[in-house]
Structure formats: structure tokens, C-alpha cells
């Protein structure tokens, strides 16, 4: 029994969860899959007085696609990986989720949790940035939509208010001939990656890039887009632009160094995996 004592409340509905969060303020935390929060509590890095368990709220774990893809926050990562709807709409999501921890973490860890936790080394925030996703949050006064660009504030901090529950993630279908790639370098499979890249592009009839988004994990306190590298691809085929885009990425990021990898190593890996991702991308068609 390692965590400090707390009060446990299992919310039956989203409004109930939001009002509990409003009542207890910053002493309360949402509990979803617990795969990040419980280890942090066991190590006493987190000590919430109240946990509001949202995992059994009916309807919060549904996946729906009708022009727009909506993934409910408490859908487990394993369920998202298994979903044919998700893999048809955005194959990058399942591929990248396969890198989130191990099978025994993904069976409990939720899709919303890996976004709300806002670990800058985490895969899904970068993927959602590359997909231009929308985050739906519900608080005591109702629902709002947050653009992914505005969602990640800094390490472990998001635009969610203390009394808001992330209820779903929404993706719009792209317009053109779209493709995607996900790539990361980790010391061991299932570890947090040293650097990861999620990239998406839309191509014209001649295979030239009309739009591109390149998002990196592990290089800053939030996932980051490298817009200059994205722009460098416009009007070129992916394979023609891949090398230069990787070089731009290396010269424009300022990643941290730690005992897993030095700053310089991360700079070089980031450039290399961006080039690799762009070279692989033309073969990875998919709505996105």
C-alpha cells in the first residue's frame, strides 16, 4: 500500500465528474486508466486527496465515424488499436499507440489519459498535433472544443481547467490524397521514446506535397511542429524533400539532454527519423 490515503469516488456521469472536480478543486484528480497516475502516487510524486474515477461512465468509451472520427476519452488504448473504424480513418493512431508502453499498460491506459497526461515524450500528443485534432472538454458550465495547437501548455500541463474532463478527441477527414508516417527511437520497445515523429501530408495528382504537418515528441516541454520543415516540402515530392526537411528539423530544435541521450544525439536522431518518415510516407496511404 504505497500511495497516500485518498477518497475514491466513481462518477456515474460526466456532469457528476465535473461537479466533483469543481467541489474539490485542485485537491482532486481524474482517474482514468491509472497507468501514469497510480505509479506517480506510489512514488508519492502525486498526492491527490480525491480521485474521481471516470472509467465506468457509460458512453465515454465509444468510437464513432461519420465524416468525423470521435474517440471517447475512456476508450482503452488496446481497444483503439483493435478498432477497424480507427484504422480505416487514421491508421497512424493504432501504429503509434503500439509504441505506448506494453500490452499490460495499454489494456488499462486510456486514449484520453495519454493526451490529458501531457507527457512531452508521449506518442499521442505528437500524433494529434500532426492530425490537427480537436479536444472536447466538459466542465460544470458545459462543453468546449480546444484546438490541439492550444491544448498542450507545458510538461504535464494542458489547457484543461481543474474542473474539466476531457471527454473525446475529434478528427476531421482530410481533403486531398493523404499519407502519414510515424517513427521513433527508443532504447527498448515499450520505453518512452528519446524522440518520435508523426507526419502527415496531402499530395496533388503528380505526387507533390500541397500540405504537410511534422510533429515531434521528446524534444521540448510540449509536442512541437516544425513549420519551416513543413513549408520546405510544398511543391516537391516527399522523397525529393525528405533530406532537406530533416536537416531543417535538426537545425531548428532545442531538445533536452539527460542520462538517456545527450542533446546532440536527440538533434541528430530527430533529423534522421524525419527524413526516414518522409521517405516511407508515400507508401502509407490512408485518409491520414
Amino acid at each position: 500500500m504505497k500511495p497516500a490515503a485518498f477518497k475514491y469516488v466513481r462518477a456515474a456521469t460526466v456532469p457528476e465528474a465535473a461537479s466533483l472536480l469543481a467541489e474539490y478543486g485542485d485537491e482532486a484528480k481524474v482517474l482514468a486508466g491509472g497507468q501514469s497516475l497510480i505509479p506517480m502516487m506510489s512514488m508519492r510524486l502525486a498526492r491527490p486527496e480525491v480521485l474521481v474515477d471516470i472509467a465506468r461512465i457509460p458512453g465515454l468509451n465509444e468510437i464513432e465515424a461519420n465524416g468525423v472520427l470521435t474517440i471517447g476519452a475512456t476508450t482503452t488504448q488496446s481497444a483503439v488499436i483493435r478498432s477497424d473504424v480507427v484504422s480505416a480513418f487514421a491508421p497512424i493512431i493504432g501504429v503509434a499507440l503500439g509504441h505506448v508502453g506494453h500490452v499490460g499498460n495499454r489494456s488499462r491506459g486510456t486514449f484520453g489519459g495519454t493526451v490529458a497526461h501531457a507527457d512531452p515524450a508521449s506518442e499521442m500528443p505528437a500524433v494529434l498535433l500532426a492530425l490537427d485534432a480537436e479536444i472536447i472538454a466538459t466542465g460544470p458550465s458545459g462543453q468546449r472544443t480546444i484546438a490541439v495547437e492550444d491544448f498542450f501548455v507545458t510538461t504535464f500541463e494542458t489547457a484543461l481547467a481543474d474542473d474539466e474532463v476531457l471527454t473525446s478527441i475529434r478528427l476531421l477527414a482530410p481533403t486531398g490524397n493523404a499519407c502519414w508516417s510515424f517513427n521513433e527511437v527508443a532504447r527498448r520497445h515499450g520505453d518512452y521514446a528519446l524522440v518520435g515523429v508523426a507526419a502527415t501530408a496531402e499530395l496533388d495528382g503528380a505526387g507533390k506535397v500541397t500540405k504537410a504537418r511534422i510533429a515531434l515528441s521528446g524534444v521540448s516541454d510540449t509536442p512541437v511542429r516544425v513549420k519551416e520543415a513543413e513549408e520546405s516540402l510544398i511543391g516537391k515530392t516527399l522523397s525529393d524533400g525528405a533530406k532537406v526537411a530533416g536537416e531543417i528539423v535538426s537545425s531548428s530544435i532545442d531538445p533536452p539532454g539527460d542520462f538517456h541521450a545527450t542533446k546532440q544525439y536527440r538533434i541528430e536522431v530527430a533529423g534522421a527519423i524525419v527524413t526516414r518518415a518522409l521517405n516511407e510516407m508515400a507508401d502509407q496511404k490512408g485518409t491520414r
Partner: peptide, 27 residues
Amino acid sequence: CEHGVCGACTIRLNGEVVRSCIMFAVQ
């Protein structure tokens, strides 16, 4: 390890592989 890393506590919960050290009994 008791914080989700080593897998020694692995059980099956409703047919899925789960780490019982990063789950509360009440859940």
C-alpha cells in the same frame, strides 16, 4: 517494482493482461 515497469504482478482481468500493482482493488 510496484510501479508498473517489471510485469511480475501481471494478471488477467476480464481476459486482458493487466498489471495488478498499478490498479486499485476498488477499480
